[in-house]
């Protein structure tokens, strides 16, 4: 039993430049790439692989940022106990880093991901719509 089919309505949040003169000229090219995608021709397959690779590289790079920023802290506190007892404005450094600063850090990484992942998708969409460029 497959889940019900996804809606094909265009994403209302993504920007599309509409130029009337271009629309008619573009149609045949769009159809060609659309068929490549739908029928899994080598060209379509390569396009999708490129998108998946770009998105995965982005996600891995940002998780590396989190591993470096947060994941190394337990090791740091063991390797350099002085860092664990260092105080900033009366608050011990581990409390400040984990209790307060880690949350904006995580949100910042998430915001960067959303921005760049959407850019990757727009690049992909542009490639499909205008393969000649």
């Amino acid at each position: 039993m497959a889940a019900d089919q996804p809606t094909s309505a265009p994403d209302p949040t993504s920007r599309t430049r509409v130029v009337l003169a271009e629309a008619a000229a573009r149609r045949s090219a769009t159809d060609r790439t659309g068929i490549d995608l739908a029928e899994q021709t080598p060209v379509g397959e390569a396009l999708v692989k490129g998108l998946v690779r770009a998105q995965l590289a982005l996600a891995l790079r940002l998780s590396l940022v989190v591993v470096a920023g947060l994941g190394t802290l337990p090791l740091l506190f063991v390797a350099a106990p002085a860092a664990g007892s260092f105080r900033v404005a009366g608050v011990p450094l581990p409390w400040l880093l984990l209790g307060l600063l880690s949350f904006p850090f995580l949100v910042g990484v998430g915001a960067a991901y959303v921005r760049w992942a959407e850019r990757n998708e727009q690049d992909f969409a542009a490639l499909i719509r205008r393969p000649e460029r």
Binding site: P10, D11, Q40, Q55, Q122, A125
Partner: peptide, 16 residues
């Protein structure tokens, strides 16, 4: 698997 990957990763606006 190719069609599934397309469905998982391509933006909805490109659905054909």
């Amino acid at each position: 698997v190719g069609a599934t990957m397309l469905r998982l990763h391509a933006p909805e606006s490109l659905r054909v």
